[in-house]
Amino acid sequence: MIAFDYHAPESLQEAVRLLDQFAGTARVVAGGTDLMVTCRLRGLGPQHVISLRRVENLDVVRRDEATGRVRIGAFATLRQIERSPLLRERCAGLVEAAHKVGSIPVRNLATIGGNLCNASPSAETAPPLLAAAATVTLTGPGGQRAIPLEQFFLGPGKTALQPNEVLTEVSLLADGAGAASMYERQCIRRFKDIALVGVGARLALDGAGRCQAVGLALGAVAPTPLPVPAAADLLLGQQLSDARIAEVAAAARAAAKPITDIRASAEYRSAMVEVLTIRVLRALREALRN
């Protein structure tokens, strides 16, 4: 176990200042469910951790009436997310992904910000967020900047976050009015496990049942969570026929760059991208019919 020092500043500005001061030897700690495990199993860890528990309103979930997007404070726990009435109604894909992480006693600690900042290729919340055109807000000494989530992930464990920045908010497109989202994954153990492959999708149909907006993203099949716009775009302006869905799934499979590791072979992961994409798109078609 790594012994680090702990700081709980009163404000976001103070937190950023501390991060800046410790110049790369400090990390934010949110729920600690990744950080503590890394310290324990790998004996790796920062010299200082900065907790934002004293700072209020960093876990607020709300709908931005102006844009229609949903905004989630980075320190919202995954349990909060899966239980939020707003998110259950407006962000079904994200809620499903949050629900699949770990277990209730883990989700009561784990935050959405931590899930993203940890930048695991299999991070559960990433595919549905990418599919819903999410952006992340990063707060640093110079103020805030917002970037699309797909520019946030740089590699396993690597993000666009500067050492002196805090991820403060995530915003994404909402379901409703002809739009719906969904997330599915394949594991070894059927329910409780890390994803071998995850597929998040969001579809918006026009009045005639043609796809107006399509988001599709994959988890655990590339060094980062992977949006597959080329596959998604095949649906634009199209009806959701079985044949078209199969085409999209094949394209998603082609875009995936899985590896073989102790959990699964690249071959199986590729095949599951196709299987899950078909499953998710068909289920969305079903959901949007009703």
Partner: peptide, 15 residues
């Protein structure tokens, strides 16, 4: 009232 895994929770975070 909410269950958490105490092995991963930092004590100082629970002040």
């Amino acid at each position: 009232g909410a269950p958490v895994v105490s092995c991963l929770a930092l004590s100082l975070n629970l002040e």
